[in-house]
């Protein structure tokens, strides 16, 4: 439980942070550290430098601007308790409240979580369901990454090693919108064995006009359950549509759950989340 030697720097600006990442290919961004530090203590990760972005004021805070813009260094605790988030994006506040324990939520950040792209983290599913746009700054300047392109592989996001995730932008939510996150926790780690985030939008006739369903924990990365989305948009009832939640997803097995069981949980949690979201949307 003792990490290797590393250098620690805490830049005051985004540009300084990017310059450090560019100059030190082995460096890692420290954004709360609740995944990175345990990996380092177990010697699974041995970065030569940690760039602590916790001292950069622009990376913090929640701003309402039609949609909601969330600084990458916003902690779970801030999301859980922010009135803006609770009122506008209850799914995000609810999801944040299901991450780890109070100590973790006081340190861990939304940006740290999505950039780490842990296959079982909660936040990736929710930002995927909410159709977020990720803002990143690198040596070449700023760019926006659609969330559908953001989670590339297990533990790999679309961010370049010298790019810093700065903001997560959630688009404005229309009327008759409902969302929910259902999580089946691993009893030891607290990670999602499966977590399903859904967002549904109903037309005035009560039919599903749009929806996004995202699954975490089941496979190597957060994934959209397109088959369910298509079924719902095609007029299927919730229960029938949820039965398709297993289709077309990539599953992994480990000691705690087989692929078959993860598929079952995906169907069950999708159904439950959809019922909640539909209720909210009506």
């Amino acid at each position: 439980m003792f990490p290797n030697d590393f250098e620690y720097v805490a830049p005051a600006t985004i540009n300084e942070a990017v310059a450090l990442l560019q100059a030190n290919p082995d460096a890692k961004v420290l954004a709360g550290g609740h995944s990175l530090l345990p990996a380092m203590k177990l010697h699974l990760s041995t970065p030569s430098m940690l760039v602590d972005i916790g001292k950069i004021p622009e990376l913090k805070g929640i701003h309402v601007n039609g949609g909601v813009s969330i600084g990458a260094y916003t902690t779970y605790r801030e999301l859980e308790t922010s009135q803006e988030v609770v009122q506008r994006l209850p799914i995000l506040a609810d999801c944040a409240s299901k991450v780890g324990d109070p100590q973790v939520r006081n340190c861990g950040t939304i940006g740290g979580s999505v950039a780490h792209a842990d296959p079982a983290a909660d936040m990736p599913a929710v930002v995927l369901a909410l159709n977020a746009t990720m803002k990143a700054i690198g040596p070449q300047g700023e760019r926006s990454i659609a969330v559908d392109d953001f989670f590339v592989e297990m533990l790999q996001s679309a961010l370049a090693p010298d790019e810093l995730l700065t903001e997560i932008n959630i688009p404005p939510m229309p009327a008759r919108m409902g969302s929910a996150y259902e999580k089946f926790k691993h009893p030891a780690s607290g990670y999602a064995i499966v977590g399903v985030a859904v967002m549904v939008h109903l037309a005035t006739d009560g039919k599903v006009s749009d929806c996004r369903i995202a699954v975490t924990g089941a496979g190597p990365k957060a994934q959209r359950a397109h088959a369910v989305e298509d079924a719902l948009k095609g007029g299927s009832e919730v229960d029938a549509a949820a039965q398709k939640a297993g289709d077309g997803l990539e599953y992994l097995s480990d000691m705690s759950a087989s692929e078959e069981y993860r598929a079952q949980l995906t169907r069950v949690l999708t159904r439950r989340a959809l019922h909640k979201a539909m209720e909210q949307a009506r």
Binding site: P187, A188, S189, S256
Partner: peptide, 21 residues
């Protein structure tokens, strides 16, 4: 919840509180 699990090669698979509940 609790179970200490070894694989056939004698590796303790529940070697931390991430896996041992």
């Amino acid at each position: 919840y609790e179970a200490a699990v070894y694989d056939d090669n004698g590796q303790l698979l529940t070697g931390s509180l991430m896996d041992y509940a």
